[in-house]
Design a protein around this nucleic acid. Sequence first.
DNA 1: CCAGAAGTGGAAGAAATCTTCAACTTGGAA
DNA 2: TTCCAAGTTGAAGATTTCTTCCACTTCTGG
Lengths: 209, 209
Amino acid sequence: MTEAAPPLRRDAERNRQLLLRTAYDLMATQGLDVSYEDIARAAGTGMGTIYRRFPQRQDLLDALFSEHIDTVIGLAEQASHYDDAWAGLTWFLERQLEIEAQSRGLGELLRSRNQATALVQRAHERMTPLVADLVDRAVRAGQLPDGATPADFAAVHVMVGSVMDASRAHTPGLWRRALRIALAGVRHADLSGDQPDEAVIDRFYNDQT
Amino acid sequence: MTEAAPPLRRDAERNRQLLLRTAYDLMATQGLDVSYEDIARAAGTGMGTIYRRFPQRQDLLDALFSEHIDTVIGLAEQASHYDDAWAGLTWFLERQLEIEAQSRGLGELLRSRNQATALVQRAHERMTPLVADLVDRAVRAGQLPDGATPADFAAVHVMVGSVMDASRAHTPGLWRRALRIALAGVRHADLSGDQPDEAVIDRFYNDQT
DNA sequence: CCAGAAGTGGAAGAAATCTTCAACTTGGAA
DNA sequence: TTCCAAGTTGAAGATTTCTTCCACTTCTGG
């Protein structure tokens, strides 16, 4: 498999952590597209240091967000164990969006306005079946209208996220209201026509634009 | 007031039209951030020509989109004359989004993911009171729950737009389903808590990020 | 304490856009 | 037909961000 990387020198490891913390903070408020120069300056290191440690932006994103993404996957797993499928769905969406509300960067990653990393792709592969099962059960239990699909919940996710992005700076809680609207919507809308298939979800979260 | 600009020479006017058509087409598929170089190349002119005619990007956007924006304002006015307020609201949103579906650039402008021009600002100033009146009437008629606000419709607009952006390339009609969801949502959600005031709308559409 | 491997800094090259401008071309009034 | 104001072109400078590289510094094992 992959070679075990030799451990970093003490000072190098300290710098690595410093860069990660700094990058995380900057991305929490400014989104994923913070320049390496800004991160290095804020961390007080040179450009060379961040490039040596994270040659590809991908490497930085993975290091920054993989555990958060695992957390979200964990939420989906927890939700899938709910007896009440609708309760599971709403609980999961709300938790996931709360996490995204903490960090603009993480939100962008999970909703992939920008770079869809392998990390995120795997996360969606794991979560989609879980959500699909919940949707299925909710439909059978009469909690959702016939024709509701997992793609509708991807849409809810993206929709609420867009409100979050547009209002984060001035009305941080507004996304909860949007979530109430969107969730009430999937329950009450007529979703019988032309259901989007599951492939739509992938494309949805991989908007290369 | 402003001096009447002398009319352009025939060939210059031809070039101007050519640039406008080219820019419109490019922005319809790629969004507002097309480079001047791309536009000039596609139109077959030099860089200097586009800069001479539209020194600020603002000038180009105004020339490109002002009539479309007037069209949308006209839709809001028509809608405001509906006796059935709910029918007016849904008709307006659907028409507006159909127009945005034709052109990614126009959608970005109307939802101001990017530059909020004076043009768009004025448009919102004109449309907001009209929508507010419709929402008011719909609430009084029992077509919308107490607590529904104009800002909720701004949210619906942005939400459906985000689905449109994420799916335009592969599932062009998906936004209609999202619109059904969002509209069913505002009718059925509990909107009694902490209403966003109207100032939220402006900020919403002026996301400076 | 020392040698050398590991790590660092920041200037400099590369690439992509934006913007200007001086030499050249063209339309149209007289 | 002539002339010149208006218009055009595309190369070149300015900016911004990305990326590399090497002289210099700092750890750490022996």
